[in-house]
Design a protein around this nucleic acid. Sequence first.
DNA 1: CGTACGTTTGACGTCCTTCAAGTTGGGTGG
DNA 2: CCACCCAACTTGAAGGACGTCAAACGTACG
Lengths: 238, 238
Amino acid sequence: MEELLSPLTRNLRSHGELSAAECARIEEAAARSISTVGERRDIIREGEVPSTIKIVLDGWVARYKQLPDGRRQILSLMIPGDICDANAFILERMDHSLGALTAVQFARIERTEFEALMAGSPAITRALWRSELVTASIQREWTASVGQRQALERIAHLFCEMHTRMKGIGLAPRDTCEFPLTQADIGEATGLTPVHVNRMLQALRKDGLIELRSKRLQVLDIERLRERALFDPSYLHI
Amino acid sequence: MEELLSPLTRNLRSHGELSAAECARIEEAAARSISTVGERRDIIREGEVPSTIKIVLDGWVARYKQLPDGRRQILSLMIPGDICDANAFILERMDHSLGALTAVQFARIERTEFEALMAGSPAITRALWRSELVTASIQREWTASVGQRQALERIAHLFCEMHTRMKGIGLAPRDTCEFPLTQADIGEATGLTPVHVNRMLQALRKDGLIELRSKRLQVLDIERLRERALFDPSYLHI
DNA sequence: CGTACGTTTGACGTCCTTCAAGTTGGGTGG
DNA sequence: CCACCCAACTTGAAGGACGTCAAACGTACG
């Protein structure tokens, strides 16, 4: 029956014990204003002032940043259930952008409503904090990954992480999941050029670790993929 | 008279309007248990269960992570006034380590006390959230930096950031501040080898941008250093 | 059926690493 | 206070991982 839970509830539940009533309150708040954006469109851009927090309900979102000269870095990936920037309005201006990789459906929660949710329930507050702390932990792992891992390890690590997270929300049956990044996107997420990403992917394929075709990823040998990636899932705190 | 404020109050004040009484409550909580660690000693290690949150009062702390094979990445640097991991206990286990770069003095606040502080004052809660959000923003910038900037830009960016932050807490008079990282440390923070760090430092020196000797950094030409670094301070949200 | 975007391939260049050997300088003990 | 010592810094030469450029190929979609 777990499949019937919304990704949001599923995510928050994993971040702390929430009563049915508390889940219902969040779902209700989220259901009040649902938006959609098309593939490859921006949801919000660096420098803008956010008025709502956003929760991904369906599709993949990339958090990214551009250097003054145009180089782009994808900072993290958000999948259904992920809260984009809890309390973003506390900082006034966005220091990064959010772009939809696929067609995306997301909930928008107003500041006042969001604050009421937190004020009304310590359990919800705690779940939101936990979600924020896990996001921070993932960001740290990305810093470490780009700083220390080699190209092949970095790409393998990205696959391990997304596979594990998708599995966590029930979206990776038979170790297969959506993976809507182009090779250029993978490059921007890992700090590599598309050409080099291509060659590393071929190596991973030849080793029988993954398949990646038409935006679907299949992990063929998790154990060996994790080894190649030096992947230790504890940073995901699941 | 600002110089008389403790770094902690100074930091939190920058994250929101706090009344004198609120500042006093925080100072009092922090003053209750003050510890010291020697240079190059760890404060807490990956895998351990934290029982208090830590606030740097004096000295520099590095947050770092090791890959299974020993490669080390410094994830961020903490200076006086910085809260190391607000709500760290929500995640149970540390997913990274904290190491003292210098002799360090820090406050430890118990979980119950920390929660009481937040419960007792919305302004304090907000200031803590803000501080956490800025930390997250800095982490994102580091990911982007390691992913997209060239070696020289990366190192220059690190100098810009630390110079700006030190200035923000009044510890960079005449554009000079403590900078207790060895060249090997700079390498671990930027994902470079010590040898290459050395060569890039020479380039920065030859260009008259900085001086760096015996753990002190002097910024000679901020404008040009910022250009070389592609540094835009807005991510610091000051 | 054509067009556009994503992927693949090859040749070549460069940024950064590796290895190995000095040199400097701050701290300590005699 | 000087001599020693170790860590940190510096230098050079050579190699490798990854980038750049340019072209061809595949494939989804209008």
